[in-house]
Design a protein around this nucleic acid. Structure first.
Lengths: 347, 347
DNA sequence: GTGACGATTGGAACCGCTTCCATGGTGCGA
DNA sequence: TCGCACCATGGAAGCGGTTCCAATCGTCAC
C-alpha cells in the first residue's frame, strides 16, 4: 500500500476550440468534420482530422449531449439479483445496444422503494438517458404517463402495458406446455410450485403459468387438490420448503411437479435430493425459463429465449429512437419444452 | 400492433430559469437551493422548493455535468458473458455504487478489439464517466497511463497493475488450497484442467492456480505427468473435451481433478457423468470461484468472495473520487474451500 | 467584364447548469 | 445619525459542444 502520486496533466484540456485554432479553421468546421456533415472541402477535412489525431482529441459527450438534447445512453432497469434470467436478458440487450453505439446505464432494483425512485427519476427531464428498458417490472399508469410526457421511449421486457411496446411470452400457454408435457408422459398427480401472487412488484408470470397448468389439467378432467398448489416468495430455498410441504399430512404424493421458474425448480431439485428421491424415476420436475444453469443440471424446462428477448427489446428501442413513430407493439416470443433428465413417465 | 399517438408535452421544458422566474428569484439562488449551498434565507429556500415541486422540476444532469466537470457516473468494463463470476462481481459493485448515488454504465467486452476500444475511449477526455472499474482485464502500461493523464480513478478487479488500486485474490495460494484439499483426502494422482496461458486478454489466474497446484504436489514429492495437465479455452465444453483426453492412451487414470474455474468444472462434471463415472466415488472434482451454480450442483470448490470483491472495488473507487489521494492499494481477499459433494477419499 | 450562384467557411447564439462577483439591504457599534 | 461589515441575492460568464446565418471566394453563363 505505498502511495503513488497521480500524474496530473498540466496542459489545459483540449477542446474543439483548441483543435480549431491549431488547424486554422473555425469551430463550426471542426464540428462538421466530427459529425461527418457535408460542406467541408476534402483538404480541410483531412487537415482537421490530422490535428485531431495529433492532439488526441475526443469531443465531450456531455457537452454534445447538452447541445443536441440527446445523450446516446439508455437506462436498463433490472431486478438484478433476484432473477438470474434478468441477467441473460440484459446481456442480449446490452450487446445489441453496444453494437448501435449506445451506452447502457444499469439500474439495479432490489427494493420496492428503489423501483419507484428509479422509474420516477428516469422519466423526469433531468435524466441523462434518451430511453429506457424496464425488465420484469410492470409500471403503473402514472409512471407510464410520465415517460410519455417526457417523450422518452420505453420498452417493457417481460412485462406489459397497453401504451408501451412490450416483449413478452405467453405465460398461460407456457404453463399449459409444461403441464401437457407431464400429462403426455402419463402423470396425473401433478403439483405446482410458484410465486406468491401478492408480490410487491406486480409480477404476474407465475399466476399465469398456474392458470395454464390448471387449464391443461382440466382438459384431462383433472382437478388437483388445493394442497398441490404451493406459492411463496421467489427464492430457491423457499421453493424447497414449499416442496417439502407436499410431503406433509396424509396427502397423496404427486408424481410430478411443475415449478414456475428454474430458480425455484433448482430448489425443488435440491430438496428432492435431500429426501433421497430419485429423479426422474420417483418424481418428475419441470421448470420454466431455461436459464443457463438448467442445462448444466439437466433440468427439463419450458424454454423462453432470454437473450433473444433482450435483443428484441433493443431493436424496438432503437426503432423508437430513430424517430419511427412509436407504436404499442406487443411482441410475443415462442416457447418450447427443453426435455432433459428430470422428467420421465411415472413409476 | 395498433398505433398509439405519443402525448407530446407542448409546454417548453422547465429549466432552472423557469423555476427562478416563477419563484421570483435569480437562477443563482435556485442553484444554491438545489445544491444545499449556504447563504439562502430560510423563507426563500422554502419558496423555491415549493416552486420546484409545483413544476416537477429536476435539474439536467447533463448540464450540471458539463458545468461541474463531474458526471456522477462510473464505467464498469466487464467481460460479461464469458465469465459468470464477473456478473456476481458486478452485482456487488453496482449495489455499492448505487447506494452512493452514482450511475454505472456497463461496457460489455467480448472481443479483444472491443476491449481496446473501450479502454481507450473511457480514458479519453470525451468520456462521460468520472471513473472506471475494470473487471478481469489487465490493462497495459499505456492504457494505465492514459487514465492517469486524464485524472480518472480506475480500480482493477480481479486483475492488477503496479500503479492502480487492485482487488485480487492470491491465485497461487488458491491453487495450493485446492490441491491440498485433495491431498488431504488421500489423492495422489491429481490432474489439472485450466485456461490456456496464451489467451488474448492476458488473464493469468489459471496459470497461477496451476503453479500453486504444482507446488503443493511437489511438497508431497509428487510430480504429475505432463499428460495430467490440460489447458484450453475458458469454456465449459472445451473443458469437457480436455477431461476426456485424460482417458486416452495408456495413461493411468487420475483419481481427482482440480479444475481452474467453476465454469470449466461444470463441463468436467458433465463429461464425467457422460462417461458413467460416479462422483465423488470414482473421481473427485474441485473447482474454483464458487459461483452460484457451484452451490446448486454441489460442487466442491475454492471459494472467493465474488460479490464482496465488487463491493470492495466500489469502496476504493469512492475513496478515490472523494479526493482522498489515490494510492496503489493491492487488496487481497481471503480464500477458503467450500467442501460439497464432489470430493471424497479415493476408492 | 460582370452579376449570380453554390461551395466553403467563421463565428455568434444557445443548450442548462454552476460559480463568482457586484449590489442592495440590514443590523450594529460608535 | 452615520459608517461598516455581512448576509442575501441577481445575474453574467463559462463549461464544450451544435447549428444557423452571414460572409467570402471562385466559377460560370451571358
Amino acid at each position: 500500500m505505498e502511495a503513488v502520486p497521480i500524474v496530473t496533466n498540466p496542459s489545459r484540456p483540449v477542446t474543439i476550440a483548441t483543435v480549431a485554432r491549431r488547424a486554422g479553421v473555425g469551430v463550426g468546421t471542426v464540428s462538421r468534420v466530427l459529425n461527418g456533415a457535408p460542406g467541408v472541402a476534402e483538404k480541410t477535412r483531412t487537415r482537421v482530422l490530422e490535428t485531431i489525431r495529433e492532439l488526441d482529441y475526443a469531443p465531450s459527450q456531455l457537452a454534445r449531449g447538452l447541445s443536441t438534447g440527446r445523450s446516446s445512453s439508455v437506462a436498463a432497469v433490472v431486478p438484478f439479483l433476484t432473477h438470474p434470467s434478468a441477467v441473460e436478458r440484459l446481456r442480449g440487450f446490452v450487446r445489441a445496444l453496444t453494437a448501435a453505439r449506445y451506452d447502457v446505464t444499469l439500474h439495479d432494483v432490489e427494493l420496492r422503494e428503489q423501483r419507484d425512485d428509479r422509474l420516477r427519476a428516469l422519466a423526469g427531464p433531468g435524466s441523462t438517458s434518451d430511453a429506457a428498458v424496464i425488465v420484469s417490472l410492470p409500471p403503473t399508469d402514472d409512471e407510464v404517463q410520465r415517460f410519455l410526457d417526457a417523450g422518452k421511449p420505453v420498452i417493457l421486457l417481460d412485462a406489459q402495458h397497453p401504451l408501451l411496446p412490450s416483449v413478452v411470452i405467453d405465460d398461460v400457454a407456457g404453463g399449459g406446455l409444461a403441464a401437457r408435457h407431464l400429462l403426455a408422459l402419463g402423470h396425473r398427480r401433478i403439483a405446482f410450485i410458484g410465486d406468491t401472487p401478492a408480490n410487491p412488484y406486480g409480477f404476474t408470470s407465475s399466476v399465469n403459468r398456474r392458470t395454464g397448468y390448471l387449464d391443461a389439467l382440466a382438459e384431462h378432467g383433472i382437478t388437483p387438490p388445493p394442497a398441490y398448489i404451493k406459492e411463496g416468495e421467489h427464492d430457491r430455498l423457499v421453493a424447497a420448503r414449499l416442496f417439502d410441504e407436499l410431503f406433509q399430512d396424509g396427502l397423496e404424493r404427486p408424481t410430478a411437479v411443475f415449478v414456475a421458474s428454474d430458480t425455484q425448480a433448482l430448489g425443488v431439485l435440491g430438496a428432492a435430493r435431500a429426501r433421497g428421491l430419485r429423479i426422474p424415476d420417483q418424481l418428475s420436475v419441470i421448470g420454466f425459463d431455461d436459464i443457463e444453469t438448467a442445462e448444466l443440471v439437466g433440468l427439463t424446462t419450458v424454454r423462453q429465449p432470454l437473450e433473444e428477448s433482450g435483443r428484441r427489446a433493443a431493436q424496438l428501442l432503437l426503432d423508437a429512437l430513430s424517430g419511427r413513430p412509436p407504436e404499442a407493439a406487443l411482441e410475443t416470443l415462442d416457447l418450447t419444452v427443453s426435455v432433459r433428465q428430470t422428467t420421465a413417465p411415472p413409476a
